[in-house]
Design a protein around this nucleic acid. Sequence first.
DNA 1: CGGGATCCGTGGCGATACTG
DNA 2: CAGTATCGCCACGGATCCCG
Lengths: 123, 123
Amino acid sequence: MTPSSKGDLFDPACPTRKLLDRIGTKWTSMAVKVLADAGPAEVRFADLQRRMPGVSQKMLSVTLQSLTRDGLVARRVEPTVPPKVHYRLTDLGRSLEVPLAALRSWAEEHMPAIDRANAVARD
Amino acid sequence: MTPSSKGDLFDPACPTRKLLDRIGTKWTSMAVKVLADAGPAEVRFADLQRRMPGVSQKMLSVTLQSLTRDGLVARRVEPTVPPKVHYRLTDLGRSLEVPLAALRSWAEEHMPAIDRANAVARD
DNA sequence: CGGGATCCGTGGCGATACTG
DNA sequence: CAGTATCGCCACGGATCCCG
């Protein structure tokens, strides 16, 4: 059903909400970081999976498809047998890495405080 | 606490993952912004709901409880009848507003590009 | 007024198996 | 190697009703 089919009042596609829906998914921010750490170099699918412990083939696949559709990641297929597929961040993806790095920095600095607050709340 | 795991996005207890699990929930970042916009002033439950179009009582309630448990929001109850409950950001919550504002800024600037990329992908 | 309790649909995500 | 297809679990979140 289309979002506007019931009059749809508020929140007509808030950009921040849409961004969080993307980077909030389990493997997205991790994939962006791995690709960012690779610099301008391309990374193969299997390499990505190796550098993202715990990710399944399927979830890595859908994550990369999502990032590719969003124009954050570029995909290049080497038509060999078996095929080799290479991924790299686009300029847009690299620009996202900046605020994402700021979030990571905040998390590393302040998550302990949040954990302590949660511990206190257990009384 | 897993020494030398600083910056390790792949730690099972990765701080960035945990932070994204929090701010990625539907109403959290909106609540933080509304409270941040209020400055040092407190905001009542009903006011928050009014400033967050679309949020249900239940979701606003659980969102605020979550933020309060995490130490990002302070809650004050006026024991009147009927009761008045006031919320405000803690210093920790206000510090989170900084990287969050950076994310919002990126979203407002670049989400159109992501939307265009998605439109192109529909061929 | 603020917020529990309950029911329920949807979607994210994992496990597994198959394919070009 | 790099996906695609299918299944099932369960947490997120919306609606509704009730309570101090």
